[in-house]
Design a protein around this nucleic acid. Structure first.
Length: 213
DNA sequence: CACTAGATGCTCT
DNA sequence: GAGCATCTAGTGA
């Protein structure tokens, strides 16, 4: 699938998440007055990825991930946090890129207010911080991240891809997952201060131990 | 600065 | 009822 204006710069969004994810780094995510440059992402598959919400099949919560690529899979977790994914993979297949962190570009004042006065470098550092800075909640679930920015009937978040040179990208295991904890499906812009801290799940098997699927 | 413990409520079994 | 793709406040160095 090709998106208008992105023909030469982006991969096919219908490719699996681990392939698409590094290409989402550098993208500008806008929602209203606040814009963020994405600096950290993670890839999740549906099938064959025990860490994915879609691993065991479709449910009401994860249904958006089984839909067409480019849409927003937004979920609520840990009793108080929202997180947003860009759906990828072909329609009918679950795959998504979790947008974990970014650096605020526009709307500093509003983002600071929403985040309660944390230092600017931490305004969108972590998946829940990012959605809070951008005021993304379940209300934005399912929207087209590549829809017309001027569409008055849909004021949800929009993504503008802007590739980062491969030599500036680092990768490693995903944060906080208890299964498939050693797959290097987390990607970030090297040395970016807005990238969140790595933390292995306390429930994950020891490093390098076999991870049953 | 590094590290730990607890909050908090939705989702699925 | 268990588990969770997390965060913050609190402690101690």
């Amino acid at each position: 699938m090709t998106r208008p204006g992105t023909e030469d710069t982006v991969p096919d969004l219908s490719r699996p998440a681990p392939e698409v994810a590094p290409h989402v780094l550098g993208a500008i995510l806008r929602h209203g007055p606040v814009a963020v440059r994405i600096t950290e992402v993670e890839a999740y598959l549906g099938a064959n990825d025990p860490a994915s919400h879609a691993w065991k099949g479709q449910t009401p919560r994860n249904a958006v991930m089984f839909g067409p690529p480019g849409h927003a899979y937004v979920y609520f977790s840990y009793g108080m946090h929202w997180a947003i994914n860009m759906v990828c993979g072909p329609d009918g297949t679950a795959s998504g890129v979790l947008l974990r962190a970014g650096a605020v570009l526009d709307g500093f004042e509003i983002a600071r207010t929403r985040r309660g006065g944390v230092p600017d470098g931490r305004l969108a550092r972590g998946p829940a911080c990012l959605t809070q800075a951008l005021a993304i909640t379940g209300d934005q679930a399912g929207g087209d991240l590549f829809g017309d920015p001027d569409d008055q009937s849909d004021s949800g978040p929009r993504l503008e891809l802007a590739p980062v040179a491969p030599e500036l990208i680092s990768s490693g295991p995903r944060v906080g997952v208890s299964r498939a904890a050693d797959r290097a499906w987390r990607f970030w812009v090297t040395d970016e201060p807005s990238v969140s801290a790595y933390k292995r799940s306390p429930r994950a098997p020891a490093v390098g131990a076999p991870d049953p699927e």
